[in-house]
């Protein structure tokens, strides 16, 4: 007779694992990948592939080097790669995309201890590093549906167009909703991003609090500022950030009130940067700043144990 396993309870576990959660996020991100290929052509597939491969290889090599357990099976590097690619313009040189992937995985994630230990979102931080390092190619916007042309036509994003006041370059609401305008390859299509968000909420991977509070704060403040609310909501990386990056587990609060504070803070900072800052876009910085504040928000909003009035 074989030996019986003796262990402490529970003896029964939820089937959800880190891997299944990451798989859900990948599924939620896939429609946007398809949209980006339709809008910006096959080169977006190349950039997505390079970023995903770059992230996975960096994670694998770094863990090998440090003799840590290999964690590429949990698929979190794939998610980081996808998110990073979605934050890049389609015209980005391949070596720069590789640089971004290495930065995201090694500098931002692995050097802080790997999955769950990083304090800032790897994709967002890598994007900010790249914006500083390669400001030219990071803002070399390509108009949609021009991939086959020999020289890609330079274009303005809806936000730069609005900031400069060039009405002729400003896309219609429908174009914004479908993503038919210049921008990073995964941020333009509102439709697929919303679909992904709804999927994640239904699958209980994320809760509605952060994205809804983020978008609501943003909408309210831009209304107060007298801006075109719908136009502002649907342009830039707002939806991509609010749905997929402000809901990252490790770098954002896990309590309900923490999520509300986080979302509201992101909305406020995005407004400040977009309307009063030097940059046309403020989503990345707002999330990064709130990432840094997350431990304090968590301290503030920690659950109170139900002690029935007894002091601990």
């Amino acid at each position: 007779m074989n030996k019986l396993i003796s262990s402490v309870s529970p003896h029964f576990f939820s089937r959800r694992s880190t891997r299944t959660i990451m798989l859900d996020v990948i599924i939620a991100l896939l429609p946007t990948a398809i949209a980006s290929v339709i809008i910006f052509g096959l080169r977006s597939l190349l950039i997505i592939g390079v970023c995903v491969a770059g992230c996975m290889v960096s994670e694998f090599l770094f863990e090998k080097l440090c003799k840590r357990e290999n964690t590429i099976g949990d698929l979190s590097a794939v998610v980081t790669g996808l998110l990073l690619a979605y934050n890049l313009p389609v015209s980005i040189p391949v070596w720069q995309a590789v640089f971004g992937s290495v930065t995201a995985i090694i500098v931002v994630k692995q050097l802080f201890g790997g999955i769950g230990q990083n304090f800032a979102n790897p994709a967002i931080t890598a994007r900010i590093v790249m914006m500083t390092a390669f400001s030219g190619s990071m803002t070399n916007w390509v108009a949609p549906f021009t991939a086959k042309m020999p020289d890609a036509v330079s274009s303005a994003t809806p936000l730069t167009a609005a900031a400069k006041g060039t009405v002729s370059m400003m896309p219609s609401y429908l174009d914004l909703f479908l993503g038919r305008h210049a921008g990073c390859l995964g941020e333009t299509c509102v439709l697929t991003l919303l679909l992904g968000g709804i999927y994640l909420i239904i699958r209980r991977v994320i809760t509605w609090h952060t994205p809804v509070v983020y978008l609501a704060t943003f909408a309210l403040l831009s209304l107060i500022c007298g801006k075109d609310v719908l136009y502002q909501l649907m342009s830039g990386g707002l939806l991509l950030g609010a749905i997929f990056m402000a809901t990252d587990y490790a770098t954002t609060p896990s309590t309900v009130w923490g999520k509300v504070i986080f979302g509201a803070g992101c909305g406020l900072i995005t407004i400040l940067i977009r309307f009063w800052g030097n940059l046309p876009e403020g989503v990345s910085f707002s999330i990064l700043i709130m990432n840094i504040l997350t431990p304090y928000i968590m301290k503030l909003t920690r659950n109170r144990p139900l002690t029935g009035g007894v002091e601990p």
């Binding site: 790997g114 309590t255 659950n303 139900l306």
Partner: peptide, 21 residues
């Protein structure tokens, strides 16, 4: 037994505790 991996900080443990620990 399922394989233990690193905490990803999802907060599910605290969100499901009856006594809010």
């Amino acid at each position: 037994p399922p394989k233990t991996t690193a905490c990803i900080g999802c907060g599910a443990c605290a969100a499901h505790c009856p006594f809010r620990l």
